[in-house]
């Protein structure tokens, strides 16, 4: 399958803060690529940077941002507007900030389609209702006439998903698309995305902190820490042989039903992500890492540790069970 999105050397600055640093990953057609990582590590900023939707104080720089064979960095605002919501759609992390509170759900859904396709209002409404049904919203006719505040959190999230699918995009960037959904609806939405991936060859960049979702739907995973992709690999490899100490810590923190002892604190990685400033050197995880040595203050080498599996670390864990 060919690549639908190729990102190389992506950096985003907000004033002196480096939110994203030389991030790189590729999303293929018909593939789900997951990005995981701690709150604030730059996942949303990465996706906003791809869509060219950064806040005014954000500065983007990249070696490559190739969408469907073309570098879109040089695109004008108009060219971007043409592909955004159309060939490249995004489900934003916070539905309330991306749904306009003063318009009905119906007018917001149909507007997307009518902006990009020459269809009548009735056709647009029919498509909106069909998609709402597919994301599990019943009584779509009633929902179309409601305002965002009249919907539950999960309904709003599903409206956002339907909106992103209105134009049958080639690339879907989904930022935490199922956090507000119960597990049965979550499974339904994820099944729908898997179907579209098969049917339309949709490429999906899925941002989530739920490693259960990652394990079940991702073809490939990139783990971010402090703005960098610190480990990347095919899903099965990454879960079987997590090589970066952070990745291992993350997997160990996942609470699994039936396996938690009541009254005991949950496992967590102590400390917080440092804020990256210009000139930072060495591994950003070293302040929290049990394997850190003096070497970790130096530039970190990238190790290829398997087919399509690489890690940024001075002391990668190469064998499960042997923790330094």
């Amino acid at each position: 399958m060919s690549a639908i999105l190729e990102v190389e050397g992506l950096a985003v600055r907000f004033g002196p803060t480096q939110a994203v640093r030389h991030a790189h990953f590729t999303v293929h057609q018909g593939e789900t690529h997951c990005i995981v990582g701690e709150s604030g590590c730059g996942k949303s900023v990465t996706s906003l940077a791809i869509m060219n939707l950064l806040a005014r104080n954000g500065h983007r720089h990249a070696q490559k941002i190739i969408f469907a064979g073309e570098d879109i960095q040089a695109y004008s605002d108009r060219q971007m507007e043409e592909i955004r919501g159309n060939r490249m759609a995004m489900i934003f992390q916070e539905p309330m900030t991306s749904l306009n509170p003063s318009y009905t759900i119906g007018s917001q859904l149909t507007e997307v389609l009518r902006r990009h396709r020459n269809v009548s209002q009735a056709e647009a409404e029919a498509r909106a209702m069909a998609l709402m049904a597919r994301v599990g919203i019943t009584a779509p006719a009633m929902r179309l006439r409601q305002y965002p505040h009249q919907l539950s959190g999960g309904l709003r999230q599903r409206v956002m998903i339907a909106m992103a699918l209105m134009c049958e995009p080639e690339l879907l960037i989904a930022d935490e698309p199922t956090t507000a959904l119960d597990v049965t609806v979550q499974a339904q939405i994820l099944r729908l995305l898997a179907e579209l991936k098969q049917e339309l060859g949709l490429g999906i960049l899925l941002i989530t902190h739920d490693l259960g979702i990652v394990a079940r739907v991702a073809d490939h995973v990139s783990v971010m820490y402090a703005g960098e992709v610190i480990e990347s690999g095919r899903t099965a490899d990454l879960f079987a042989r997590p090589a970066h100490p952070y990745t291992r810590g993350l997997i160990d923190c996942v609470p699994v039903p039936g396996k938690i002892k009541a009254g005991e604190p949950l496992g967590s990685i102590p400390g917080t992500v440092p804020v990256m400033k210009e000139g930072f050197q060495g591994c950003a995880f070293r302040f929290r890492c049990a394997s850190a040595t003096d070497a970790c203050t130096q530039d970190v080498p990238r190790h290829e540790i398997g087919a399509q599996h690489h890690v940024l670390c001075h002391h990668p864990v190469t064998d499960k069970g042997s923790r330094a």
Binding site: V36, G37, E38, S39, Q93, E176, T179, A180, H209, L211, G249, L250, C253, V254, P255, P265, L266, G267, S268, I269
Partner: peptide, 10 residues
């Protein structure tokens, strides 16, 4: 629900 697993645990 908006937090990653480690921060969630904290």
């Amino acid at each position: 629900s908006a937090l990653d697993v480690s921060v969630q645990a904290q």
